[in-house]
């Protein structure tokens, strides 16, 4: 009887439940590591006024590169799960630190990269914006400044792999 249980269980499943099943990972952990490792550089930077009804957005990309000798923010992910953030000529280092550790939120189905300092204190996360296997994989870093418990504004910074 016990041998039949899996078959009975399976037969009771509703057809539409099939759609809700998560398929196997598209790529292995090694492939993910290969895709993520390397230098990611800021492509665009947007500042959203969270107090505005229309979420008024200002493109501040040029602010990061307008001064002679300035460099767009970038971050380098290494295969040993450490990272470095370039600060030379960078107007603002949004990561707060120049090096630390990184990890996927879910090794099989990652949606973001968690960053921590050398003491494993979390310092933020970067969302994986588009399919990593696509032509232009993108990472999105978001930082929100608060007025008490209310959002004042949010920075949305896209990083493309170089």
């Amino acid at each position: 009887m016990l041998c039949l249980l899996p078959f009975i269980w399976s037969a009771c499943e509703k057809p539409y439940d099939e759609d809700k099943k998560i398929g196997p990972p598209l790529y292995s952990s090694d492939q993910l590591l290969t895709i993520i490792s390397g230098k990611w550089q800021m492509q665009t930077a947007m500042q959203v006024d969270e107090k505005s009804l229309t979420k008024e957005t200002m493109d501040i990309t040029d602010f990061f590169t307008q001064e002679p000798g300035s460099n767009a923010p970038s971050i380098v992910f290494k295969t040993d799960y450490t990272f470095t953030a370039d600060t030379a000529g960078v107007v603002v280092n949004y990561f707060g630190i120049t090096s630390g550790k990184w990890s996927f939120d879910d090794p099989a189905y990652p949606t973001k990269i968690n960053l921590s300092d050398a003491n494993n204190q979390a310092i933020g996360s970067i969302s994986i914006g588009t399919n990593l296997l696509g032509a232009n994989p993108k990472l999105l870093y978001t930082k929100t400044s608060m007025c008490g418990s209310d959002k004042a504004f949010t920075f949305n910074i896209d990083f493309l792999k170089k």
Binding site: V48, K51, S145, A152
Partner: peptide, 22 residues
């Protein structure tokens, strides 16, 4: 609604001295 902020204003409307503002 039309914003009553004039023609010279800051975006975002909240200015922090250590954060980017336009």
């Amino acid at each position: 609604p039309k914003l009553n902020r004039g023609i010279v204003y800051a975006v975002p409307g909240t200015i922090f001295e250590n954060e980017i503002t336009s």
